[in-house]
């Protein structure tokens, strides 16, 4: 019975963590956050020992792979442990004998991937229902997880576009021209920063996708434009346009301050 209790606890934890991360649009679950932060820290540490930023390119991919392993792995182990709690939970279809431990592990993985039951059958009506529930769970986890990852890549692309947009705007020598360029594109810039801010809240993992070059890195470009904004507002340059932009930047700083720095 101990296996059943462990299985129930594990399944509740992974289901909460998964659905909070993927569906709530309010950030990531506790374990997902811990995994993401831990891997990102490893990459940042390796970056301090490296000559260039190439290693950081793999941070986002590593986090996504680790999260898939955590979500699907925990679901698989949870199902496997629940099968272990009953000796006759899984039967060999041809010999009608109870399946050994390794075959229960195979059966649970086979069911979760919705491939079928792999020459084994559930041992009772209760386990038949449980098997159907787990098969649906595997299907839901895989499809919803993939949809989430597509949204994340779209948010990462937006992050890079924003960085590039700012870098392009500031690609003039004169400070006055830079301010004028920001004023001319104030609305678009504000919308892009706001969208990135919302992406940050919905998909915190986007913070750990790093760019190798400075032009497409958001942090240095945002720091540059913020300094420009602060100086321009001190000199009372077109505050009607710059104040909303400054406010949008404040919202972003508020989001990042609470979560990442």
């Amino acid at each position: 019975e101990i296996y059943l209790y462990i299985a129930i606890c594990l399944l509740i934890i992974v289901a909460y963590d998964f659905f909070f991360t993927v569906i709530s649009i309010n950030g990531a679950g506790l374990i997902t956050s811990m995994i993401s932060k831990g891997i990102a820290r490893c990459f940042l540490w390796m970056n301090t020992k490296a000559v260039n930023r190439t290693i950081l390119r793999f941070s986002g991919v590593a986090i996504i792979l680790a999260l898939i392993c955590w979500w699907l792995g925990a679901l698989w182990i949870g199902f496997f442990l629940s099968l272990l709690s009953d000796h006759t939970a899984v039967m060999d279809a041809s010999s009608a004998t109870a399946a050994p431990t390794i075959d229960k592990f195979y059966f649970s993985g086979y069911m979760l991937s919705t491939l079928g039951n792999g020459d084994f059958v559930p041992g009772s009506s209760g386990w038949k229902v449980m098997t159907a529930i787990f098969s649906f769970s595997g299907f839901i986890f895989i499809t919803t997880g993939m949809t989430y990852l597509i949204s994340v890549s779209s948010a990462v692309l937006h992050k890079r576009s924003l960085a590039l947009f700012i870098a392009n705007l500031l690609y003039v020598k004169d400070e006055g021209d830079k301010v004028q360029a920001v004023i001319r594109n104030g609305d678009q810039l504000r919308n892009m920063i706001n969208k990135h801010n919302q992406n940050h809240l919905a998909y915190p993992i986007v913070h750990y996708f790093y760019s190798t070059d400075e032009t497409t890195s958001l942090a240095p470009n945002l720091a540059r434009i913020d300094q420009l904004l602060v100086d321009a507002l001190k000199n009372n340059v077109d505050s009607n346009t710059l104040h909303p932009l400054y406010h949008s930047m404040n919202s972003y700083l508020h989001t990042v301050n609470g979560t990442f720095v």
Partner: peptide
């Protein structure tokens, strides 16, 4: 000031401190 310190932290969290 606080704003500068915040951006310093953001740059650090983006791997730009080394």
């Amino acid at each position: 000031d606080i704003r500068k310190a915040l951006f310093k932290d953001i740059l650090k969290s983006d791997g730009w401190d080394s």
